[in-house]
């Protein structure tokens, strides 16, 4: 049997573009009905979904051609179709739909398209070829929705990473000229670099000369963490600020000794309160205990 090649397809025979354009409403009804059988849209979103599906069909009708190749869906003339898919993905994500459901929804337009093409009639061979072609195009569009979703998720992860970074290193101005930074969690090299820069910027903004780095929330202090602390302390000194490292718990001090970690000349205090007292004294502030005991 001769296998029909893509290039054999007679151009302009089906005029898919016109076919879709002329039957847009019927195609829309058919498509949404088929989709609803699988998973019904939330009533408040049904209208939105219909509008989006309609503009997808409009754009598809304008972009598709009898000799469109599947890979063309990534080209510039198809940007209108891709934009409507972006909107469809967002609506479905808002609805809480699973990734497969969204691709499935887009691909469920295949049967209604087949019906349209069969209605137009023609040689079985030609019909088979045009249906194959349309299927491949729709498959690519389904795949594209999966890519959009991955991109959306990546954006969410990147935003959350930024948020975690901000949450995990709040720079607190505890008094005029005194900053306290509770360091929390593991200090990997990228994060510490950013934390260090945030602290230094805060020193300039608040004109603070005393900076307390509290490591109570850091689970382990190995040579790498110690190295980062030393670098931060050195950078602070270059700018004209003084650092105090506090929150070194006994177990951590023990581990540091075992690992041979040396904080060198850095001033350390066991408790944050001791560091605060020292910072106030250095800053020329008098701390008087009301109820001394």
């Amino acid at each position: 049997m001769r296998r029909p090649a893509d290039t054999d397809f007679p151009k302009g025979l089906y005029m898919i573009s016109d076919l879709i354009g002329e039957n847009a409403e019927a195609l829309l009804d058919d498509w949404l009905e088929a989709a609803d059988r699988v998973s019904r849209a939330r009533p408040e979103l049904a209208h939105e979904r219909r509008l989006q599906a309609r503009s997808f069909i409009e754009q598809l009708g304008q972009s598709i051609d009898d000799d469109t190749r599947p890979e063309d869906v990534r080209s510039a003339p198809w940007s209108g179709v891709r934009e409507t898919l972006d909107a469809i993905v967002d609506t479905h994500l808002d609805e809480g739909k699973a990734p497969a459901d969204i691709a499935f929804f887009v691909m469920s337009i295949k049967r209604p398209l087949h019906r349209l093409l069969v209605m137009r009639g023609g040689e079985p061979d030609d019909m088979l070829r045009v249906i194959w072609r349309v299927d491949l195009i729709v498959d690519r569009l389904g795949l594209y929705t999966a890519e959009i979703q991955i991109r959306r998720k990546e954006q969410v992860i990147a935003r959350q990473q930024e948020e975690i970074l901000e949450l995990s290193s709040p720079v607190v101005q505890v008094w005029d000229g005194v900053l306290a930074v509770p360091l929390i969690g593991t200090l990997d090299s990228y994060r510490t670099q950013q934390v260090t820069e945030t602290i230094l910027e805060a020193v300039v903004e608040t004109r603070s000369e005393q900076v307390i780095l509290d490591i109570t929330g850091v689970p382990t202090v190995d040579t790498q963490v110690a190295h980062h602390l030393l670098k931060t302390v050195a950078a602070l000194r270059l700018m004209g600020a003084e650092a105090i490292v506090s929150g070194i718990r006994p177990q951590i001090a023990q581990t540091m000794v075992h690992l041979g970690v040396d904080l060198g000349q850095v001033v350390t205090k066991a408790r944050l309160s001791d560091a605060l007292k020292l910072a106030f004294r250095r800053g020329g502030l008098l701390v008087s205990g009301g109820a001394a005991n």
């Binding site: 820069e197 230094l200 910027e201 300039v204 950078a235 602070l236 000194r237 270059l238 700018m239 004209g240």
Partner: peptide, 24 residues
């Protein structure tokens, strides 16, 4: 000294230990 300059110098290994510093 600006923050960006301070971190870069530390990464270069130039901590200027013998130099006194101040904010302004």
């Amino acid at each position: 000294m600006r923050p960006a300059v301070a971190v870069t110098l530390v990464e270069l290994g130039m901590t200027l230990d013998g130099v006194s510093t101040a904010l302004d």
